[in-house]
Each structure stands twice: as C-alpha cells, then as structure tokens.
Design a protein around this nucleic acid. Structure first.
Length: 180
DNA sequence: GCCAACGTTGGC
DNA sequence: GCCAACGTTGGC
C-alpha cells in the first residue's frame, strides 16, 4: 500500500531543482527522532511532497518518491559536517534515511498560505507540527495538493496584512526562554 | 532579524 | 525522571 509523505528542505541547501539535477539523493541531515522514525516507516515507491522551508514563501514545490530505504546517513560520521554526531559509530549508526528520487515540479507552487486557506487541508500535520521536517500526509491530502499544484493560485500571493487595529495584548513580562 | 514553538540536555 | 535552560526550526 502506497504511503504519502511530506519532506522539508531549505531550497538554499537543497531544492527541487537540485533533486531534478541529481535525480536521486539521500535525505541525510535529519536530526530529529520523530522525523527519522517516519523515514523508517517508508517503503520503496512511497510518494513524497517536496516542501521548501525557510524561504519566502514556503510551500510545496514538487514531487518525489522513495527510491531506497535503510540508507545510512553518512554525514553523522563526518567531523566536518554540521550533522556530525560524535555518538554515532560505524558499527552502530544513529541516523539513517531514505534515498529520494525526482518525479516532477508542480506546475504551480503550492504556498503554505494556499495550504492554510484550503479547507480540505485543515488537518494536515504540517499545520500542527510546525517544526517537524518529515511527516505523513493522507492520500487525499496528497492528491489535493497535487490538484492545487495544477491550478494557479487564485490571486497573487501577498503577505497577509497585519490587522491595524488592536495591537496584541501587552504580553506579560515574560522570562525569555532563551536568555542564556 | 525576531521570536514562538518545541525538542534536547543536564543538574538535581 | 523532573523540569528549567538551552538551542534550533521556520514562519513572518
């Protein structure tokens, strides 16, 4: 049974065009256990929505599929890599991933704003788990995004204007979580 | 660039 | 094993 997934990548690092150029690429560098565990559930032939994150606007740029599973993430062994993991040993790897194969670019980019605006996508995991980089989508959600990718966005995508009225309630003086 | 969300780390 | 501090993701 085919499963469906959404995988995020920052286009500055690796975009759908990069995948088109190389054809197949190991999805290395994931350092989140939940994301890794989802990759462990993948099977060859699963479909993937390729999502561009940390870009303006973020959104689904294309389609890929799972070409190979159980791929050891080589970056964990490379001291020069930002993804180096000192705990990872050759005979006891911590991080594994899948090879992903290019399928196509969507004719029309499906921005996060379009996704948010679509009632059929209200339950998309993407909207709830903002920081997860690999996650399942349902078959219906996958197909819906492909449909949106076939049609042009109804209007030029513009940033939502902030409501000018009521400013947010003054936040209570919060202890900043990340004050060092 | 800012900062909310949230997973991870480490002291206890 | 709790939980505050820390560090990172990622939208805006």
């Amino acid at each position: 049974m085919t499963q469906y997934w959404l995988m995020k990548s920052e286009p500055d690092a690796f975009s759908i065009s990069d995948l088109e150029r190389v054809g197949v690429e190991p999805w290395s560098g994931v350092r989140n256990r939940m994301a890794r565990n989802f990759m462990r559930k993948m099977a060859v032939g699963d479909r993937v929505l390729f999502y561009h994150s940390s870009t303006e606007p973020p959104g689904v740029a294309g389609l890929a599929d799972v070409e190979r599973t159980g791929v050891v993430d080589e970056t964990q062994f490379d001291p020069e890599s930002p993804y180096f993991d000192p705990d990872a040993k050759r005979d006891n790897p911590v991080w594994d991933c899948v090879d992903v194969k290019y399928v196509s670019k969507l004719p029309h980019y499906v921005s996060l704003a379009r996704i948010r605006a679509d009632p059929e996508l209200a339950n998309l995991m993407l909207l709830k788990w903002l920081r997860l980089s690999v996650m399942p989508v349902s078959e219906d959600e996958y197909k819906r995004i492909v449909v949106l990718g076939d049609i042009e966005a109804p209007e030029p995508e513009k940033r939502k204007r902030k409501p000018t009225k009521a400013k947010k309630k003054p936040k209570k003086p919060k202890k900043k979580a990340n004050k060092r």
